[in-house]
Amino acid sequence: MAELLQFVSSGLTVGAIYALVALGFTLIYKASDIINFAQGEFVMLGGMTTVFMTLAGVPLPLAASIAIVATTAIGVALHRFAIEPARGASAVSLIMITIGASIFLRGTAQIVFDRRFHSLPPLLGADPIHFGGAAILPQSLVVLASATVIVTLLWLFIDRTLLGKAVLATAANRLAARLIGIDTRRIVEFSFAISAAIGAIAGILITPIALTSYDVGTLLALKGFAAAMLGGIGSALGAVVGGLLIGMIEAFAAGYLSSNYKDAVAFLIILVVLIFIPQGLFGRAKIERV
């Protein structure tokens, strides 16, 4: 029983990390149909900027705020200088731009920062919380709680604000949205800003657990993307459920089956789920018009 609880705790820890990264994919996709492969770099930028700010003597809360603002600015810049000039290009071309951006940001980060691993102090101390023979770090709960808060805020925003409705309208039909007077360019830019901010927050919160370095983004983006797809891309709730599910599968596979093949088990299950539910757990099937 104790070991089962420990596996759950590990699954929640890792899953919450994936969920936070997956959430970043959601909003940009919703507004523009783009899978932003530079999302992992937003996560890296959040963590690394905070680390280097604190090393320079800036107090942690201020460092974290600066990191979030800086990453948001980079997100906006990515849209304005790379995505917007290529307006009208196919989805694959736009995705390729985000891949180029991710290589660029990674390449720049290794010069501006360094190529070593770094950590941050956990928010609520490093002493594990014990329950039923299992131990979980308070920081894992912080990550989990943040994912919940972000999902709630996203839902409130989309559902309850005019701007949110504009995002929905843009997602549903860009042309129609423009016809009724929505500045879709602004909406997409806004989605890049928020996604970058979510990424930066994720980066700051997970660094005390997972550590960070200039190239941490690649694998996080890969897992986050998988989580977002498993949950159904475009659904914030799906992103969180997808992330937690993958985290759980990995933990249980490592605990009960084989730690060598835990990633393989995770992707096998994703494959099987998608074969039976082709639009992901919470995704809506898109109807192709002819």
Binding site: A82, A86, A89, S93, L94, M96, I97, I99, G100, A101, S102, I103, F104, L105, R106, G107, T108, Q110, I111
Partner: peptide
């Protein structure tokens, strides 16, 4: 690396 990424973006 940074240049490689930049060139890919500019091409696209």
């Amino acid at each position: 690396q940074a240049l490689l990424g930049l060139i890919v973006m500019v091409f696209m």
